[in-house]
Computed example of a mutant assay.
Amino acid sequence: MTGTDPAAEATVTTTEVVLPGKVEASGLRLVQRALPQPAAGQVMVRVESTAVSFAESAMRRGRYYGQPKFPFVPGYDLVGIVESAGPGVDPALVGRRVAALTKTGAWATVVLLAAAELVEVPDGIAADEAETLVVNGITAYQMLHGRAKVRGGQTVLVLGASGGVGSILVQLARQAGARVIGTASPRHHEALKALGAEPIDYRDPDLAARVRKLAPGGVDAVFDHLGGASVDLSYRLLSHTGTLVSYSIASKLDDKSPVLLSFLVLLSKLAFWNYLPTGRHASFYDIWAGAGKPGSAKREAFLIRTRTDLSHVFGLLRDGGLTAKIAARFPLAEVAAAMELSESANRTALGKIILVP
């Protein structure tokens, strides 16, 4: 009879939110299953905070390009405490608060993750505050400084300025010394003014004229999450050397056309504009661009970039340069209500919707 290590065989029970197929938010299911102890290079993380984003709304409809086959556990990012570490992982990581960009799988109470893909959260930052910055902070920072290269004295237009990404874009742009025009529901205008933005009603039929009145020479950058016809307007609002950064196709969420076709149409349009003899530039931002396969040199470079940028944004939050904007908090068991709020045309709060396992 050969001996076995009881600790190696021990399992931990996790509660997960499962998306079984194309269902309404009420069709999400809570299930429990056993997790083994971490394998080599892995850690077990007790999730403290995760969130609802546009990606999950698209996945629920089967309209997120590259999503897994149903059923699966959604959840784009998380913040939690490392409870145990597998072979080859620095044991000092146990007990630390970490963040992870997951794309799927974060809507759970306990998860297994590759230790190499974690970013440590600085002391003094609460879990739900850190959660507001994981995917949204990386996205906003890389678009603003990597793609648009916004500088002091420039004017930028942020569509959906009250959202999770938009509210961080506003703060980062103001910190860079840029003037910010932001579209949002009137109920959020005072909050946007407090962040230093000049708000415009996103439903205003004269939105373009109002932007041109504020920026007669055009804006230096537009950040557009809507896609579709919106990018045409965004491009026309640019200055002669302006930059359009498109980063989602939210306007196509309930469209019946194939999602790949919607992306191809958008990408073709952006590419065509870049061939025109103007000083303008247009691009599509994807947080996973260049990620490569696990273990590859591309993945290592992607992880270094992600860790560097998120650590910088965490530092801004810790030092008071950013304010965490939390729209609402829901227990994981009330994920359906959280999604319904996220997808509501009249969001009642500004920022990110947090799920608390």
Results as ranks from 00 to 15, higher is better:
residue 1 M to G: 09
residue 4 T to S: 12
residue 4 T to E: 15
residue 11 T to P: 09
residue 12 V to E: 11
residue 21 G to V: 06
residue 26 S to E: 13
residue 27 G to N: 13
residue 33 R to E: 08
residue 41 G to T: 05
residue 41 G to R: 04
residue 54 F to V: 15
residue 58 A to S: 09
residue 64 Y to C: 06
residue 65 Y to D: 14
residue 69 K to S: 14
residue 72 F to R: 00
residue 74 P to L: 03
residue 76 Y to F: 12
residue 76 Y to T: 12
residue 78 L to C: 07
residue 78 L to A: 05
residue 85 A to C: 10
residue 88 G to Q: 08
residue 101 L to M: 13
residue 103 K to N: 15
residue 110 V to Y: 14
residue 110 V to T: 13
residue 112 L to Y: 01
residue 123 D to V: 15
residue 124 G to E: 08
residue 125 I to V: 10
residue 126 A to T: 11
residue 133 L to E: 03
residue 141 Y to W: 15
residue 143 M to Q: 03
residue 145 H to W: 12
residue 154 Q to F: 03
residue 158 V to P: 01
residue 162 S to M: 02
residue 164 G to P: 00
residue 165 V to Q: 01
residue 172 L to Q: 00
residue 173 A to W: 01
residue 177 G to T: 00
residue 183 T to Q: 07
residue 183 T to A: 06
residue 184 A to C: 06
residue 185 S to A: 07
residue 194 A to E: 11
residue 196 G to A: 05
residue 197 A to L: 04
residue 198 E to D: 13
residue 200 I to C: 06
residue 208 A to D: 02
residue 209 A to W: 12
residue 213 K to G: 10
residue 214 L to K: 01
residue 218 G to T: 03
residue 221 A to F: 05
residue 222 V to Y: 01
residue 224 D to C: 05
residue 226 L to C: 14
residue 232 D to F: 13
residue 243 T to N: 01
residue 248 S to H: 10
residue 248 S to T: 12
residue 259 V to W: 07
residue 268 S to I: 10
residue 275 Y to L: 14
residue 287 I to L: 11
residue 291 A to D: 15
residue 296 S to L: 05
residue 298 K to M: 13
residue 300 E to T: 12
residue 302 F to M: 11
residue 306 T to L: 14
residue 306 T to H: 14
residue 315 G to D: 12
residue 319 D to K: 08
residue 324 A to T: 06
residue 327 A to P: 01
residue 332 L to P: 02
residue 335 V to Q: 09
residue 337 A to G: 10
residue 337 A to V: 11
residue 343 E to Y: 05
residue 346 N to C: 15
residue 349 A to P: 04
residue 353 I to N: 00
residue 355 L to R: 02
